[in-house]
Amino acid sequence: MRPAFSVLFLTTLIGAGQGLLIALVCGQLFLVVGTGDASLSGGFYAMGSLLALVLLALGLLASFFHLANPTRAWRAATQWRTSWLSREVIALPAVMGMAVLYGGLHALGWDGALMHFANGKSLDLTMAVGFVTVLACLALFLCTGMIYACVKFIREWHSVWTVINYTLMGLASGFVLAAAYAASLGAVVTGLYAGTALVLIVLALAGRAVSLWRNARLKPLATLKGAIGAPHQNIRQVTQGFNGKSFNTKEFFHGKSPETVRMLTTFFLACGFAAPFVLVALGMGSAAVLWLAVMVQYVGLLAERWVFFAQGNHVQNLYYQRKA
């Protein structure tokens, strides 16, 4: 498939935004249930939510560039009963709304206790809103992953690993970003974020490695025999029927050499996973190193998304093998 830059930016940006929101809520939960007295100001969460909101908004903006008729985009929310794309169109603004609510409540300091527990702890309003925010983020990860995973004519995508990897990579980038953000403000949760980020990077790498391994062993969904229904083992296309281009020859082929795909695969494994792991592990606590990790990882994940698209080989390509 042809990697569309609008979609590469959309999926990587909102992934990081969702990961950051989840990291913020995890940080709050960690401090609430922890035994220490440490806590963070509402401003920390509010600024963090704002940062996540900016990423989500940039992703939304990028998605508009994918549409040929963006003024009708509101219609895309109507078919949520059957279409994962429609569900994402609903979930993304919902997550943005939760980010505004979560950050806003923290900023205003509206944080009354909703419930008191026997051990003296309480469930505060912001914490409860935070839990809903996490659920919304996870729902959005599910929608984004399922958009690709449910396309059964692209075997490389049609797998549960697509959903798992979108989620893990989003979380990993979000936690690295959260670590950099916390380190810049000298917040107590820096170590928590950096440590979790390391675990998530390893998990995301493992998930992506499984999908690379799976893609290398896929059996095609169909052959030319079924595609044209001729009872022959040996069928060659003589002509696809035209010498120029068509949507079919542009949208479904990436047009780059297999070497380019291999090179970018190595690049994203190094830049999207190995390098940020090393930087986060060695740079514990140093904001500058963590921000560098954020940027290196983002570039790596963009390359990862490019390869994800390029490796998707659509069944229709059977019909477009030769111009003649």
Binding site: L224, I228, A230, H232, N234, I235, R236, Q237, V238, T239, Q240, G241, F242, S246, Y319, A324
Partner: peptide
């Protein structure tokens, strides 16, 4: 609508 051509057999 497109018309394509295939060669079958050996």
């Amino acid at each position: 609508n497109r018309v394509q051509t295939f060669e079958c057999g050996t």
